[in-house]
Computed example of a mutant assay.
Amino acid sequence: MGEGDENRPGFPWVWLLPQLAVLAGLTVWGAAVYPSLPERVPQHIGPGGIDAWADKSVGAVFLPVLIYAGTIAVMAATSAAALRMRTEDELAPGERASSLVNRPATRASALRTARATLLLGFCIGLSIAVTCAVMWRTEPDPQVSAWLFAAVLAPLLLGLVPVLAAAVRDRRESRESRESRESRK
């Protein structure tokens, strides 16, 4: 166990549960509608509606679910990395850290960042669910409503709010921490 490990917050598993619930829901929903889907399924939805089709297969139908599973893995790994990283206030006086790493200012900031990242992952899942509502329709040529773009974009924008708020708060804490260390010199 490294120095400062006892002060590290644990992984916020509760914040991962909504993503896992959406993943499970998408999997069950996809399995339930799969037998009744037409032989051609929408593969891409562009500004003018459905612009690419694929033959019905498990891979084509469950591609959004697989993409979301990968998204969950990336978001969980990113959150875990933020929690394991040495924060700015843990660096020794005068120790320089790589400018390639945007490290959190404090442990509290790392936890906020991890939670915000997991919340963004949940919102991505909601956006994918909206697209599945079109892709998994049982009629052979589903129509795309004008609201689809807004319905896909809204959860993403909502998920970005806490990420941006955590980043702004972290930058403020970082500046205050740096000023405090400099005033003690």
Rank of each mutant, 00 (worst) to 15 (best):
G125H: 09
M1A: 15
C132R: 06
A167S: 13
R86C: 02
S177H: 15
L119I: 13
T113W: 04
V152N: 03
A146Y: 05
N7S: 15
G125S: 08
E139W: 01
G48P: 00
L16S: 13
E90I: 11
V22W: 07
V74R: 02
E6R: 11
M1S: 14
R40C: 02
D5G: 07
R103N: 11
G94E: 04
G159W: 02
A110D: 07
M85P: 01
V130M: 10
A80N: 03
L91P: 01
V14N: 01
P93V: 08
R137E: 10
R175Q: 15
R175P: 05
L66K: 06
L111F: 01
L111C: 01
Y34I: 06
G48F: 05
L126N: 06
A167D: 12
S36A: 15
I72H: 00
N102D: 15
T131A: 09
E176Q: 15
I124R: 00
T113L: 11
L157S: 12
P140G: 02
L111G: 01
P18D: 06
L111D: 00
G159D: 03
P47R: 08
R86E: 10
L148E: 08
G30V: 11
T87M: 04
A81K: 10
V65E: 05
I124V: 14
L160M: 13
A97W: 12
M135Q: 14
A114Q: 01
A166G: 04
K185Q: 13
T71Y: 06
L17D: 00
S127P: 08
A54P: 02
P140C: 00
P104F: 03
T131F: 07
A52W: 08
A97P: 03
A165G: 09
P162W: 05
C123N: 10
A97K: 07
I72C: 03
S36K: 12
